[in-house]
Amino acid sequence: MRKEPIDPDGLVWKRVSPKYLTVRLLGWVVGTVINLAIFSIPLVLVLTDVWWGFPPLWVAWALPIITLVICVWRGILIPRQVRAIGYAERNEDLLIRTGVFYQRTMVVPYGRMQYVDVAVGPIDRAFGLCSLKLHTASPGTNASIPGLPGDEGARLREQLSARGEAKLAGL
């Protein structure tokens, strides 16, 4: 993983499963197709003469093209975004980092966790993945790790719960 300026020194990030990239790309393909279909409607209507004159032909062409450019750009970013997701278990806390342009590094002390969620959706299940979410008493703690292999997710959940119990303090 590339080292970013806000990354801590001497820390080995664990990466999420490479299969998660496939899941994200699948989602991206579906999203792109839907977006393109929606933004092509004016073009189709203009070309088939259902609507004439409005919107102007160049606008009708521009819409799907801009959509396509945005979607392709997001598609190019996905591998980097997936590679940017990392987590590290330390003695007292769990570190999670995400983001390529807008980077975020979060630390959740084990003693602050109220509960741990493990969620598996149908597509995740097909790839043997799961996502894990930590909850503290603060709604601002948006600490989730997507795309974990199933057994790693289970291990992490057990590990976090055990450490949380050992370290738990009041609010």
Partner: peptide
């Protein structure tokens, strides 16, 4: 009383 911390950095 700190629950968790996060560092944010945009471009």
């Amino acid at each position: 009383r700190t629950q968790s911390l996060a560092l944010h950095q945009g471009p």
